[in-house]
Amino acid sequence: MPAVPTALRLFRYVAIAEACSWAGLLVGMYFKYIAATGDLGVKIFGPVHGALFVLYVAAVLAAARVARWGWGVIALGLACAVPPFTSLWFERRMLARRREPVAA
């Protein structure tokens, strides 16, 4: 398999990190709103997730430029930043698409 361009590698790492930050934020929200034991998790993971969200948007745009994604794929990638863990689904989908042989 050919070397993966830096923008695509960055996109992959950021998509995974963004999903992990979602997990941390959801756990923090559970402890803040359901268990009512404190808001430390939200104070920590809220800003982390916010930063990774912005980085994910930038990574999608950078990867789209390198991989020459169409507007629909870009819109889907950006929309996948909103629901929890869909950045992982989108990253896997784009990885599989990259590995598929091109029909002659």
Rank of each mutant, 00 (worst) to 15 (best):
V42F: 08
G24P: 04
V27H: 00
T6R: 15
L40T: 15
G24A: 05
I16Y: 13
Y33C: 02
L10Q: 06
A7Y: 05
A3L: 13
T6N: 03
D39I: 06
A15C: 10
A36Q: 14
A35S: 12
A17I: 07
A7R: 14
L40C: 01
K32Q: 13
L10G: 03
Y13R: 12
V4D: 11
F31K: 03
G24Q: 12
F11R: 02
V4R: 15
L26S: 05
F31E: 03
S21Y: 03
A23H: 06
T6C: 01
F31A: 01
S21Q: 03
I16F: 14
D39P: 08
M29A: 15
A17V: 10
A23S: 14
L26H: 09
R9I: 10
L26V: 15
V27G: 01
Y30W: 15
E18F: 08
G38Q: 09
W22Q: 05
A3M: 11
T37E: 12
Y30R: 07
A23Y: 03
A36D: 08
E18V: 06
F11H: 11
Y30H: 12
A7L: 06
S21V: 08
R9Y: 08
K32D: 02
S21H: 10
A23D: 04
L25M: 14
A36M: 07
K32M: 06
D39C: 04
Y30F: 15
L10H: 12
G41N: 05
L25E: 09
D39A: 13
T37H: 06
L25N: 04
L40M: 13
T37C: 03
I16P: 08
V14C: 10
W22T: 08
T37P: 01
A3P: 12
W22E: 07
V4N: 07
V42H: 03
A23Q: 06
Y13E: 10
G38E: 10
I16W: 14
I16G: 05
V27Y: 03
R12D: 14
M29F: 02
I34D: 06
W22G: 04
I16E: 02
A7N: 04
V27K: 00
A36Y: 00
G28S: 03
L26C: 12
L8R: 15
L26K: 01
A19P: 11
A3W: 09
V27E: 00
R9K: 13
V27W: 07
F31H: 08
G38A: 04
P5F: 03
V27F: 06
A15M: 07
D39W: 01
L26E: 10
G28C: 06
A17M: 08
D39V: 01
A36T: 00
I34Q: 08
L26F: 13
W22L: 09
A15E: 06
A19M: 07
A19E: 03
Y13M: 12
I34S: 05
Y30T: 13
V27N: 00
K32V: 00
C20Y: 09
L40V: 12
I16T: 11
V4Y: 01
Y33N: 15
A35L: 11
A36H: 11
A3T: 14
A17F: 08
L26A: 15
S21P: 04
R12N: 10
R9D: 09
G38D: 08
A35D: 13
L25H: 05
R9Q: 13
Y30V: 12
R9L: 14
Y30N: 00
W22F: 14
L25A: 10
A35V: 00
T37D: 07
L26T: 07
T6Y: 02
F11P: 04
L8Q: 13
G28F: 09
W22I: 04
A7K: 11
